[in-house]
Design a protein around this nucleic acid. Sequence first.
DNA 1: GTTTGCTTCCATCAAATGATGGAGAGAGTA
DNA 2: TACTCTCTCCATCATTTGATGGAAGCAAAC
Lengths: 210, 210
Amino acid sequence: MATPLEKAHKDPESMKARILAVACRIFGEYGFHGTTTRMIAQEVGIDISTLHYHWGEKKDLYEAVILDINKDLGQKLIDVEKIIHGLPLSERMAIAIDTMTDYFFARPEISNIMLFRYIAKTRDNVDLRVPEFTADIARSMGLTRKSPHHTPPRAMLEVLAVMNAIHNFISGENFFRPMVNLEREEYIKTVKETLKFVLIPAFVQREGET
Amino acid sequence: MATPLEKAHKDPESMKARILAVACRIFGEYGFHGTTTRMIAQEVGIDISTLHYHWGEKKDLYEAVILDINKDLGQKLIDVEKIIHGLPLSERMAIAIDTMTDYFFARPEISNIMLFRYIAKTRDNVDLRVPEFTADIARSMGLTRKSPHHTPPRAMLEVLAVMNAIHNFISGENFFRPMVNLEREEYIKTVKETLKFVLIPAFVQREGET
DNA sequence: GTTTGCTTCCATCAAATGATGGAGAGAGTA
DNA sequence: TACTCTCTCCATCATTTGATGGAAGCAAAC
């Protein structure tokens, strides 16, 4: 039997879920050390002790955030994979880039948290076993044909290059958009064009060579 | 007449310069809020008051770090530009990617700090007018031929895509290298190959079309 | 109405953190 | 020697921050 707390976790209106959602956003903006439990509590409109009551230590909440966005991201990747399955490579990539870019722009916390995990150390080590999708994406992109059950380093890095290129434009919006002086919609559109222009030709060209 | 402190700033053995170098590394690893003045002082082997004596507030030191790496990066870009000037596009890009990747791997703090600035907010706003090189790189890559005195948004984003792709692999080394299970040297080599493979064809192909 | 269990807030604490004043060490100079 | 100037450290402070105990609120169960 699920405890009330466990049930509450599923209900997006529940306090526990509301805290998680806000924590996700704030951690994404300021990083682990840049975020204080008080910032999150204030944004939710509650006392910090309520926050600690639901999630325990700050580190625990942060881990919950990571697991949460990872679950969401994994589901999204499965959805996209279904849509693009069977299409020619150039279309597969174009649709995947469009779809994932829209998704990340709608939930920039995800890109933020992913990048923070990649580049930032944490004083109190928040190391946590989280499912990694890079190898799956490599398979989905057809980069593992020669060795279906093993993902070569080169294929992994190619996937990371693509994914991170997307993340960067989402997480860097506050910095880049003033640089290029575009409205939000126009920025998103140009980002998509740029990503497709830069990322697709290499893969299509290689495919044609075989 | 330069004060002793000003003179010291130039001497890399001086206390002020030693603090700056360590601060650069630590801020790069942990970000602004993840870094404490005590961490820096301890790494240098001095008291925090000595650190404050030379650099004032934490924020001032951080700004000094940003200005310092920016100056260095600007000089490096000028050097590279000289080397690749006049070569065909594909060679220009290959050499630039190789050279810049080596440079950032040798000084990962630069990639770290750049990415931190792009993606992370700071509670106490550290906003600071720093020269931006994106437009210059766009010019150097020949992306502004149609409008030599204005850099279109699209060209800016293309440059950012290229530069950030490099930064990501350097800053993400701690995260990515265990994923692909490569020794450092092998990782660097594969990163370079991957970057050149992913980034060059798009630009070369477009050039051929005109 | 009373009891029970879950949730929330107030008051408070201990540790971490940014920052400073002032004493002392040391080198150079008169 | 006495003086000055620069640099460094020790002691200390005020604030921020993560965290907790306990009282109060509140709804459902008895």
